[in-house]
Structure formats: structure tokens, C-alpha cells
Amino acid sequence: MIRSRNLLLGGLLCLIVVAGALVSFLWTPYDITVLDIPNKLQTPSLQHPFGTDHFGRDILSMIMIGARTSLAVAIVAVGIGMGIGVPLGLWAASNKGGWIDEIIMRGNDLVFAFPSLVIAILITAVMGASALNAIIAIGIFNIPVFARLTRSGALSLWEREFILAARVAGKSKARISFEHILPNVGNLLIVQGTIQFSLGILAEAGLSYVGLGAQPPIPSWGRMLADAQTMVSFAPHLAMVPGLAIITAVLGLNLMGDGLRDLLDPRIRVVRQ
């Protein structure tokens, strides 16, 4: 397991981000609700490893708390995508070729035609901008991803002998789906989950950047970048740090996803040996 370099490096990067987010609940180097104007726009130093922003707030502390927003939005959005997409995919696969399958798959195609940003714009136009609406937008976008993946994984399983055995034993389609199919598509879902998680972090950052995501005073990496934009010529660190934080999280998750896929999919592992 440790032999997978991707998994190790990805895990390490993710650990840094998650640890930062968790520690921020108990402790941050500075209180970000306190403005310290005399110390504004300081470059990185021993007191402020990542410098300070235009209000003199410690950027490291803001990044730590911002990690909470990013992770929370992405986790819940993946949860929505899996929670709705996976049962739909299982249902579609168990009725392959039937009208339920058709409706679910066409519905997926339809949602796919709405890029997550467009969903977010629609939701924001109706309900206003907030972190919750960003979660809903990214979550809706995730549903067809998981539904398709689950369906295609499940379809090949339905042909297998052990499923036939379960059908002969008189189990219902729904029961087979959850007892036998779901555990066997679990690996696929875990790998895709990490990828969607990283896309969720990118999407949240983008939405917050254009003002459709988390609203002040909730710190968010995307909004830190939006604030930094007008000051990038004289205080580039304001833009560098949140950008690098996003890259750390996304790269970590992607590498972990690659590593997990190698680990969980024996076919690929054989090829590599």
C-alpha cells in the first residue's frame, strides 16, 4: 500500500489541509475577527508566516478557517451527489432498458447540459448567494456523475453468477442492488468520490470568487482571491497563498484518487507490475 507514491503524496497533502481545518476549530495563530490596520499588507514574516491582508488579519489563520468552508462545501456536495445519484444508478441498472432506466438516464443527460456554474447562477438568481446555495449547485451537478458511474458498474454485475444465485434465492431487485451490487461498486465510487471532491473544491473557489458562494464574514479561499485581485500589483502574496492552498487540496485529492484507483482496481495493478 505504501508503495503507491501517488497515494502517499496525495494523502500527505490532504492531511495538511484537513489538519489545518480541524485545528482551526480549537486554535488559530491570530483572531481573524480582530482588525489590525497598522499591520496591514505585511509580507510573510516570522510573526505572520503568510503575511497579513488589507485589514491586517493573519492570512495563515484565514487559510485555516477557509479550509473548513472548502472542505465542508465539497463534502456535502459529494454527499448529495452520491446520496441521490447512487440509488438512481442502482435503480436504473436493475431495470435496464425499461422506462425507469430511460427516464433516469435522460434526466442525467439533461442535468449534464447545465454546467455547475450555470446551476449556481440559476439558484443564486432565485435564492441569493450563500455557501448553502453553492453546495446545492455543486451537489446537483454531482448527481448524474454518480448515477452514470453506478449504473455502468452495476450493469456488468447483474450478468454475474452470484447475482443470479441471489435472484434464484428469491431476493428482490432492490435488495440485491443494496446487498450485492452496491458493495461491489464501492471501489469505483470511492475513486470517483475523491475526484468529485477535488472538483467541488475548485467549483466552490470559483463560485466564491465571483460572489456566488460563501458570503462575508465566512472566510473562503475563493473570496480571499477576489479580495486580492485589486491588490495583486503591490501585495502578490495575498493572491499567492489562497491559490496555493487550493492547489494543495485539489492536487492532494487527485493524487489520492489515482493512488486509490491503482490500489483498488486489480486490473490496472497487474498492468503496472
Binding site: 491559490g243 487550493i246 485539489v250
Partner: peptide, 22 residues
Amino acid sequence: TQLGIAVPNFWFAMLLVLVFAI
């Protein structure tokens, strides 16, 4: 490419502005 996928395009845009415009 792994790095390219992880970079938010609007952040990369800001860097481009910083380097090539400013």
C-alpha cells in the same frame, strides 16, 4: 498535467496579469 488540473483558472489568470500585464 496533474498540476495543471489542480490550478484554478481564475487564479492562474491573476498570475498572468501580474507577470505579463503589470
